[in-house]
Nucleic acid binder design. Structure first.
Ligand SMILES: [Mn+2]
Ligand SMILES: [Mn+2]
Ligand SMILES: [Zn+2]
Ligand SMILES: [Zn+2]
Lengths: 146, 146
DNA sequence: TTCGTAACACAACATTGTTGCAATTAATAA
DNA sequence: TTATTAATTGCAACAATGTTGTGTTACGAA
């Protein structure tokens, strides 16, 4: 882990009133260095030897509550996690972007620029939030299968 | 179970090349008589004494593959099942309607009339299907908490 | 009626996530 | 620096959901 990055992670933890621990830094580092969301099984695979499974779950829950990361359930119901935009706070997530779930590599991508279009709902339903998951084949998989 | 309904279920099974069994009729009956999607835990609760748990899972999987029912994962990752529109077939589901997940009663509603609006995706992603889940408070819960 | 296959039940297992509690450690004050 | 304390962690035990394998049962066609 590079010093510049560690500094960034420490700031993030400090800002949210969380203690600086090795486990938390590791989780932030893994999530930060990937170009797609990270699944819970993947996380457990790569840092599950160093960090207790339960601790990992608790870190993820804490981060989500603080608005540091957001959770995306893919089409198999697997939990995937991605760093939030820095405008997210404990009680206000701003991640209402579309997510893409590749049927081939199973990765989940945050399409940060693609917002969920407005919708007219039937009467009587009060809308709080929306989750749109698009399925198909991702850029990478399309190239590799050509 | 009324005879008229049983007849309908039998036709559905026959049409899809599935044997008429008590377990399958029961599942179809439960799913048909509810105004919202039915969760796996609920199904297991009410028919889990009569039907083996594994059998229930296999029936649900078969029905989904045949296009008899579709599965909706709610915000907790719980599987919910609803009867398909009768235009659905084994290889072509036509259930691209919006689903509503109530934060209070946790029910999942099929909003059959509400279609997912078109979306312009970033280049490189090939879209096969879309899933939009709207969260909030449902009609019933709003009334009962007034 | 017989026969082959589809459907079933039961046991065993895997994965994902939770809870309680004791031990450790990071942040702060003395 | 050392002491204090609340937050964090690790471990054990458990619950829920879903899968796989295998032997048995029962439909439906011949
Ligand atoms: Mn995202
Ligand atoms: Mn539906
Ligand atoms: Zn892919
Ligand atoms: Zn409700």
């Amino acid at each position: 882990m590079e010093n510049i990055k560690i500094q960034k992670y420490e700031d993030l933890l400090l800002k949210n009133g969380l203690k600086r621990t090795g486990a938390r830094l590791q989780v932030l580092d893994v999530l930060s260095n990937r170009n797609s969301a990270t699944s819970q099984p993947y996380l457990e695979n790569i840092i599950g030897k160093a960090i207790d499974r339960v601790t990992l779950y608790r870190i993820l829950k804490t981060f989500e509550e603080k608005g540091i990361i957001h959770r995306i359930l893919d089409n198999q119901g697997t939990a995937n996690y991605a760093i939030c935009s820095n405008s997210c706070t404990a009680h206000n997530h701003h991640d209402e972007h579309v997510h893409f779930n590749c049927n081939n590599c199973l990765k989940v991508y945050c399409l940060a620029e693609t917002k969920i279009p407005p919708l007219k709902m039937p009467a009587g339903f009060e809308v709080y939030s929306m989750n749109l998951i698009v399925s198909g084949i991702c850029k990478d998989c399309k190239q590799h299968t050509n």
